[in-house]
């Protein structure tokens, strides 16, 4: 299955992925109307100390703890993609607590927010990878890793 992988060697810490993610999931037609003057709501986050940086988003684990722990059945694994039905989410944030990668975060409406590989939005493929200027984020098939 194709996943989002991060090559921290090439991450510039430019944070463009966060903005591309927020735009892709905003439903707006252009980035300015999606993001201007609004708080940034992104499912990917650039971590680091200025010297080493890398983007963190959902790993779509084969055995996802978030899905196991979800009390409302909002999180599920579908064709390898860990998806969230935000309508079902009760905002208990257990998933935020258990995710070993810190890749789930509470959204502005209280429901959990996580990367769904842009498969449901107008992008169709992860906007973070498509917009990364240095191929630090790639969307590709790799030998299945245990995760």
């Amino acid at each position: 299955m194709k996943r989002v992988y991060v090559n921290e060697e090439w991450c510039l810490g430019c944070h463009l992925c966060e903005y591309n993610c927020a735009f892709a999931n905003s439903g707006a037609r252009d980035m300015v109307s999606a993001l201007k003057g609004k708080p940034l709501v992104s499912r990917i986050r650039v971590e680091g100390d200025g010297r080493i940086t890398y983007a963190v988003s959902c790993r779509h684990c084969t055995d996802p703890l978030c899905v196991t722990c979800c009390i409302s059945g909002a999180l599920r694994r579908e064709d390898g993609v860990v998806r969230i039905d935000r309508g079902k989410c009760v905002g208990c944030l257990t998933c935020v607590l258990v995710c070993p990668y810190g890749a789930v975060a509470p959204g502005p409406d209280g429901a959990a927010l996580k990367c769904e590989l842009c498969l449901q939005n107008s992008c169709g493929a992860p906007a973070c990878a498509a917009g990364c200027p240095n191929r630090a984020i790639v969307y590709e098939e790799r030998e299945e890793e245990r995760s």
Binding site: L12, G13, C14, H15, L16, E18, Y19, M31, V32, K36
Partner: peptide
């Protein structure tokens, strides 16, 4: 300024 979303990519780069 109508387009700038304050992402600060310019500043970092």
């Amino acid at each position: 300024d109508d387009r700038c979303i304050r992402c600060r990519v310019c500043e970092r780069q």
